[in-house]
Design a protein around this nucleic acid. Structure first.
Lengths: 219, 219
DNA sequence: CGTTTGCTTGATGTCACTCAATACATGTGG
DNA sequence: CCACATGTATTGAGTGACATCAAGCAAACG
């Protein structure tokens, strides 16, 4: 359905561990259906996660009933970190068949204590999560709606891993984009057509976008 | 000027280290003037930081000249983490005399490799940073301007460390709040008066706020 | 300088509707 | 019983009309 980023991840190959146990051996792989929960907001933080293939959304239902999406996770992304007892967010699979590596938290922390390379790996994962959120913050705070959508597209393309070609296949609906950017679906639709008419993007289909002029209004 | 949270931090007291070196001994304390740069966006990420007292803003200048504030750091907060060579953001002191503990990155990473408790400390700091950003995301994405300001106030009060009293002293100007929330200063002002007239907050002064009804529209 | 208010214009949310694609159950004829 | 068509409901996407809210400018206030 959309370009799978696969498992091409240099950081996550087999690595030297001093005691035989590595981070792979303590993880379990789970596959999720579309819209299936990975965890809910009131669950305990007993696991860490990493996307192998597919995509997930981290969201929260506001008191007024709106759904706020805080993050989209793509292959290679870590998530589920928390210093509290419970995550404040729920996470759902977006794509049918999303595969996620699940790491039991206590065991992984113990492994990190004994193996500095594991600690380093987790550290890099959290650093990447911080940068993802910071970029996301810039995108969300873009004032004009079309520019916000465009910033999202550029950011998303950069995350998917630019492979030279310009075509970008969105795994998410307009509704998801709206809840991620704090806009209404209608405004997102209008932003897409606006960007297309102004020549900033071209649409081969609703989910198939080509960014033509990423320069204007990049940040 | 505003309530100093001081240094009351259990995690950061002297801790057991196996080789005599602890994270305190490799850090240096620096004091900054108001609006003085801690680092700029194109600088290399050679240091990690932690606020001891005062406050800082992490910001970035957009291509259209607007200043986007991505985070406010308060005492106890770690910042400066990045998996890239350079931070994409600049950080400035907000409060005169802001004191920051600076940790040389390579040395701290080496210390983390040899001392699991240091690695754990850094991990907790990054987890807290992630949660800060996620909460910030929820605040920024609140649709209505008054509700967004109110969400900011509630979030900020929770971060400053609720000590029972309701009074909240803001270390930052309306302009900073505007750039943090993606609003104009005028709209922030109007939101303050609107919240005051509706009885949600009371203002003892421009920087002295009391949150009366945090419940409505909390998230 | 930081904060606040009034006024106007423009942008966005809301409501309503259309359109296309899909899935699923039902019906019909061989 | 099976193959194939039809009707219906559902979902995602796009558009238009209208009211509302926030930005921008100006000016006053402390």
């Amino acid at each position: 359905m959309f370009r799978s980023s696969g498992c091409a991840d240099p950081d996550f190959g087999p690595h030297n561990s001093r005691n035989g146990k590595d981070i792979h051996s303590i993880s379990i792989l789970r596959t999720f259906h579309r819209d299936q929960d990975v965890f809910e907001c009131d669950h305990r933080c007993d696991w860490w996660y990493r996307i192998v293939s597919g995509a997930t959304r981290k969201y929260r239902i506001r008191s007024d009933g709106r759904r706020q999406i805080a993050d989209i996770h793509l292959p290679g992304d870590f998530f589920g970190f928390s210093s509290n007892e419970k995550h404040g967010f729920s996470v759902q699979a977006i794509v049918e068949g999303t595969t996620i590596a699940c790491y039991p938290r206590r065991m992984t922390e113990a492994l990190a204590d004994s193996d500095p390379s594991v600690a380093r790996l987790i550290r890099m994962g959290t650093f990447a999560a911080i940068e993802r959120l910071e970029q996301q913050m810039l995108v969300v705070s873009t004032t004009s709606a079309p520019e916000r959508v465009k910033a999202f597209l550029v950011h998303f393309r950069d995350r998917v891993g630019r492979s030279g070609e310009d075509g970008l296949a969105l795994p998410i609906t307009r509704y998801d984009i709206a809840d991620l950017l704090g806009l209404s679906t209608e405004t997102v639709c209008r932003a897409f057509t606006d960007l297309r008419e102004r020549g900033a993007i071209s649409l081969e289909g609703p989910r198939q976008v080509t960014i033509i002029r990423p320069g204007s209004g990049k940040d």
